[in-house]
Nucleic acid binder design. Structure first.
Lengths: 350, 350
DNA sequence: CTGAAAGCGCTTACAG
DNA sequence: CTGAAAGCGCTTACAG
């Protein structure tokens, strides 16, 4: 059928390693050794081969390489979410784009796949690993008691967790310090004089959410302010519901903290329909920043993370892990709290 | 080094087609034929093989398949943009997510790569094609006089253009009808009584922008209203500049049309700093919708496209092309104009 | 209808 | 330091 053996078009075929060897009168082994920087051939032969490789425009056939267990020059990225949820998370795109800023320079590809569940994600990792389809994987949305680090460790597939830490330290990670971030937010609100803070939070099954919740509880306690936590999935609808629940719990929460900007926008809407003004009656903070936070009136105070840079660091670290280096868990520089009108009326300027 | 031959861990190795053949006492050929639905073996043998395949949990090694010129079960998606621009385009993520909704069910992967230029994008297509790395590619950001359709046709690599039409019809496409969309917008503004409309447009080097511009000129002419077109890249900064330029050109444009919501938000900001209110002094429409349009006050009238569905259709069509079917260029259903407060104060409700 | 064999383009022990 | 050979896991002519 289509895509069969003979994709016509190009005149001369692309050169194989064997062609290089034939032209130069050396063995294929020599070519392979030169290409892969292995010892065992003279410096002069290596030079001759490498220059001929460039001259003839040779590049490796990734399928052949994969079949022998060598590099595939591809990283894998699987996400266990419904496609429509993936589509609304700017975070993912920024992460991917940030990774690409590193990968494209190294001619690395990114194999991206949406899967229905963690279980299928793990099955995919097995296939990828067995087929040498990817050299390593980026893991996101780490859950509490997540099976993935164990399986990846077992498979020996290089991996990097992005956005959380493996509590058992099996797999290295790059993440923002969620505890510090939450403390920054709470401290800001306390310093403004708020005596009650509600946190419309994501699901604590996620490791990074769990950390934020812990930090929220600790920080509000230390600050001596009343605290309430409501759980919502990451959608606008559920955030509206949770916002109402938070209002009911506390007589008058002084401030509301939302997990992300989509939830914050929905929450502010809800507050308005209940006749509460922002920041007059209630202050609002989003744990994630985006264009929408500055477009709104009042602008929304938000924690600003450099997600593009985050993706770049993640890709870099994973590449190092693939190269066999000892990669350690690493935190991104602290996120900056962008103080805007939703908490501080005095910065209401355009 | 890492990722070498022996990724330990798993106990028994994964079965090969040969293992199936051995267990059943048939030839590898029989197994291959059964797997690929080729004639030449008895129905009974086929059944036996297929059921053993399921029982043993066999799945194809994609590298081995690619090496023989068969399917790779992967589609390719290359984007020639700066990583930071990719990261701010929700459109891409939605497109990718929509594609995944089709692909993940078929166990297809998506190889995503950001490249610095169209030239490198073409080089990448050549490599992908030669290595059978992907079964087909999705092409976006079609330019006027774009070389890609020609090259892809030459390579015989199945391809689908998303978001524009190949003027020469070499490659099938899925797109929104940009001309109809623009007419809908202009008609709406004319019907509201605006006598002057400015279009803060993207670069006409893009095929879909060119079509929109043509339609804008035609529709404003027919409507008998004054028209101005300003060009901006897709950033907020440049939109602000272009908005000022549009104001200077026309004594009093009654309405402004922006290429996307990021540009619209920046434009509205700019108008405010110049003391023009929306929609009091000037109406505003965005050619793209997103959460931000409903979060703003006034809400922004915007053309709403179902990008998730768009991605799904694109993936479906490309899969059909890969299967050798004759895929025709296809339009998505017309986009809906979401009329909101930025053009019509009467719908200012929350 | 079925089987033995060659080949895809690499890498890697193993001999020289 | 170098070469001939086997092998990765498939597919596909070619004989039976």
């Amino acid at each position: 059928m289509a895509g069969g053996t003979n994709r016509a078009g190009g005149q001369g075929r692309r050169p194989r390693a064997r062609d290089i060897a034939d032209v130069l009168g050396v063995s294929q082994t020599a070519v392979s050794f030169a290409l892969n920087g292995r010892p065992g051939i003279s410096e002069e032969t290596r030079e001759r081969i490498l220059s001929k490789v460039r001259e003839m425009g040779w590049s490796p056939n990734s399928a052949a390489r994969a079949l022998t267990g060598a590099r595939s020059s591809t990283l894998g990225f699987a996400v266990a979410r419904a496609p429509e949820d993936v589509g609304s998370e700017a975070f993912f795109l920024q992460l991917i784009a940030g990774m690409q800023s590193v990968l494209s320079a190294q001619r690395y590809g990114l194999l991206f796949q949406v899967v229905p569940s963690i279980k299928e994600e793990i099955a995919l990792y097995r296939r990828w690993s067995e087929e040498n389809r990817v050299d390593g994987v980026v893991v996101v949305d780490l859950r509490v008691d997540d099976d993935r680090p164990r399986v990846l460790k077992e498979l020996g597939l290089p991996a990097l967790i992005a956005g959380a830490r493996d509590p058992l330290g099996r797999i290295p990670s790059v993440s923002f310090d969620d505890a510090v971030a939450m403390r920054t937010v709470v401290d800001h609100l306390v310093s403004l004089g708020h005596r009650a803070i509600a946190y419309v939070s994501g699901e604590p099954a996620f490791e990074h959410i769990r950390r934020r919740r812990e930090a929220f509880t600790a920080a509000t306690e230390e600050g001596g302010v009343a605290a309430a936590v409501e759980t919502a999935d990451f959608t606008a609808e559920d955030s509206a519901r949770a916002t109402l629940a938070a209002l009911a719990h506390m007589d008058s929460p002084g401030a509301l903290v939302f997990e992300n900007e989509v939830m914050a926008v929905a929450g502010i809407e809800t507050l308005r329909t209940r006749g509460r003004s922002v920041p007059g009656d209630l202050a609002v903070v989003s744990m994630e920043d985006s264009l929408i936070c500055t477009a709104m009136r009042p602008q929304i105070t938000a924690l600003h993370r450099d997600t593009l840079r985050f993706g770049a660091v993640a890709a870099q670290q994973l590449r190092r892990a693939v190269d066999g280096e000892d990669v350690r868990t690493r935190d991104m520089p602290p996120s900056r709290l962008m103080i805007r009108g939703s908490t501080d009326p005095s910065v209401e300027a355009g």
